Simulated assay, not measured.
Amino acid sequence: MTNKAEASRPSEAKQRALVHQLVQTIDAHPDDYHAYYDLTVLLTAGQDFEQAEALAMKALGKFETDRQAADLFRYALGNVYYQAQEYDKALPYYQKIQDTKLKNDAYVMMGQSLMAKRDYQHALVWALTAQEAQPTALDTNLLVADILLALGNNQQAYTYYQLARQVDPRSGKAAFNAGLTAMVLGKPYAALFESAEKLDPEYFQKHQQQLTDIEKTLAAQKSGDDQATKS
């Protein structure tokens, strides 16, 4: 799934030019928090996590009396740590956010952070909270489904992948994973894989090994069952 902390990484030359431009904006308008936030996001996208962290910390201190701005920098700091795979540092910043819209995004990021730590039970709590707040968002339904799949709850995972498909019928990931869970559950799956390959051939190819592995596992189980029946 697309996580909310992700940003496309600019080319090195473009990165330098944009950083220079934003630094000039900050110098010219030191009390406008938007440029600080934009620069933090840009540095994070460029994987310059040390500078992004320092800037977001500085901005959080400078604008802490402005609740909206402070929450924005807490979210930015959480995203810096998430992208740097320092999930234990990210979580407290997401948890402190009060702004209603950002809070929903923070729930998703908390779910993703805990999933990355393989703490699936706690990840599921936050993912379900996010899904209840945004039931028609593709990413919330995919996140819940992914965690349920990781927990081995294929039936519920299938339900949420199908919900994700209803939200966005163009999602190749939702179609592919609905197909995987359908295969395990003994439901019709061929049309789902066909749809996934058409919608997102790159995702389909990248995850085809998963499909092969499940096919082998199911074949081995069937073979074992057949042997048990004969004996």
Rank of each mutant, 00 (worst) to 15 (best):
T100A: 15
N141Y: 02
L128N: 05
L128S: 10
N154D: 12
Q156F: 12
A178H: 08
V167H: 07
P135T: 09
M110I: 08
T181D: 14
G179P: 06
S195K: 09
Y107R: 09
L143S: 05
A130M: 01
W126H: 15
E132P: 03
N141W: 01
F176P: 01
A116T: 05
D139I: 01
H207R: 12
G179I: 06
P169V: 00
T100M: 10
A182F: 09
Y189N: 13
P135I: 13
T100K: 15
R118L: 13
D139L: 12
G186I: 10
Q210Y: 03
A164S: 08
H207P: 05
Q134E: 13
A164D: 05
L199R: 14
R118T: 12
D105C: 12
K173R: 06
Q209W: 04
T159A: 15
L163M: 03
M109R: 06
D139F: 09
L143E: 01
N104Y: 06
M115D: 00
T129G: 01
K187P: 03
D99F: 12
V167K: 05
V167Q: 11
A145N: 00
E202K: 04
D119H: 11
N141S: 14
L138G: 08
W126P: 00
N153I: 13
A123V: 06
S171H: 11
L148V: 09
A178T: 08
Q205S: 12
L163C: 02
D99S: 14
Y189C: 15
A137E: 15
K173E: 15
Y189D: 13
S195W: 03
Q162P: 08
A190I: 11
D200R: 04
K198W: 11
L192M: 08
Q210M: 09
D99R: 14
A190Y: 07
N104V: 10
E194C: 03
A175V: 03
Y160H: 15
D168I: 11
V144T: 09
A157F: 10
V167P: 11
N153F: 08
A174P: 01
A145D: 05
L128D: 11
A157T: 08
N154S: 13
R165T: 10
Q134D: 15
A178N: 12
G111N: 07
M115N: 10
Y158A: 04
E197D: 07
Y120A: 04
Q205V: 02
T159N: 12
N177H: 08
R170M: 14
G111P: 01
T159Y: 08
T136N: 13
E202F: 01
L124D: 04
L148F: 04
F204Q: 02
